[in-house]
Computed example of a mutant assay.
Amino acid sequence: MHSTMSPYIAVNRGNSPPTEPADNHPVQIYTYSRHTGVVTTQPGAVVVNEAEDPPDYLGLAACSVCLCWMIGLLAVSYSFESKKYAMSGNYARASESGKSARITAVAAILIGLVITVTMVAWEFMKHSNCSPNC
């Protein structure tokens, strides 16, 4: 006795609605580290649904190192952690680490800008009050 019911369960991990096979062929799910593929048996079609990684803000973190290196390195560390979690498929932790990288990088940039503007203003004020022989 042959059943037309699929022995496999279709799983949708992306943002699109689940794909149902048009001709009731069994559906097989292949999950890799970053991608989920839905493959129907012959003569059906092959549908690949790629899950998008959460942002890791590595560029922002790298820029923050230039303005405040101590806090910027922490932001880069969070960014690499986010990338590591995304590669392993833990998208919730990857998103959390990405948000931490963004917040830390923005804080480093703001602190670095405040320190830079304060130092430039201090030097300007120091030289503007000086006599011509300074």
Rank of each mutant, 00 (worst) to 15 (best):
I115A: 14
V106P: 00
I103W: 03
V11I: 15
K83A: 15
E20Q: 12
S6E: 05
A101Q: 01
A101C: 02
H127V: 12
N133Y: 14
V27C: 12
S82E: 04
V114Y: 04
A105T: 03
H25R: 14
S64F: 05
V114F: 11
F124G: 06
L74P: 00
T36E: 13
N133L: 12
H35P: 00
G112E: 00
V46Q: 08
I111P: 00
C66S: 15
N49S: 04
P26L: 04
T4D: 08
T40P: 00
A51I: 13
D53M: 05
R102C: 05
C130D: 09
P43F: 04
P26H: 06
P18I: 10
A61C: 04
A51V: 14
Y32R: 07
M87V: 07
S6F: 04
E20M: 10
N12V: 02
P21H: 11
C68G: 03
V27L: 15
L67S: 11
S6R: 04
A108E: 01
V106Y: 02
D23Y: 13
P54M: 01
C63S: 15
Y30V: 13
C66D: 14
L67T: 09
L60I: 07
R102G: 00
S88M: 14
K83R: 15
M70H: 06
P7H: 04
P132W: 10
P17K: 06
G59R: 07
V76M: 14
G89N: 08
I109H: 00
G14H: 02
N12W: 02
F80E: 08
A107F: 03
H127P: 00
V114C: 09
R13Q: 06
N12P: 01
I29G: 03
L113H: 01
I103S: 11
I103E: 14
V46H: 07
K126Y: 08
V120H: 03
Y32M: 08
E123G: 14
A61L: 02
G89Y: 09
S77G: 13
H35W: 07
V117M: 05
S16T: 09
I9S: 13
I29A: 08
C130T: 12
N15V: 08
T36F: 04
Y8R: 07
A108K: 01
F80P: 00
T4A: 05
I109K: 01
A121Q: 03
T41P: 00
S100E: 10
H127W: 08
G14C: 14
S77P: 00
V11E: 13
E20D: 09
Y91T: 10
S88A: 15
P54L: 02
F80H: 14
M119Q: 11
R93Y: 07
S79R: 05
R102Q: 09
S95D: 14
E81C: 10
K99W: 06
L67P: 01
A61S: 14
A51T: 10
S95W: 08
Y8D: 11
H2M: 06
A75N: 08
L58H: 08
A86I: 04
S64D: 04
N15L: 12
V65G: 03
A75I: 10
N129S: 12
G72C: 02
P21K: 03
D53E: 09
S128K: 10
P55W: 01
A45G: 01
P7K: 06
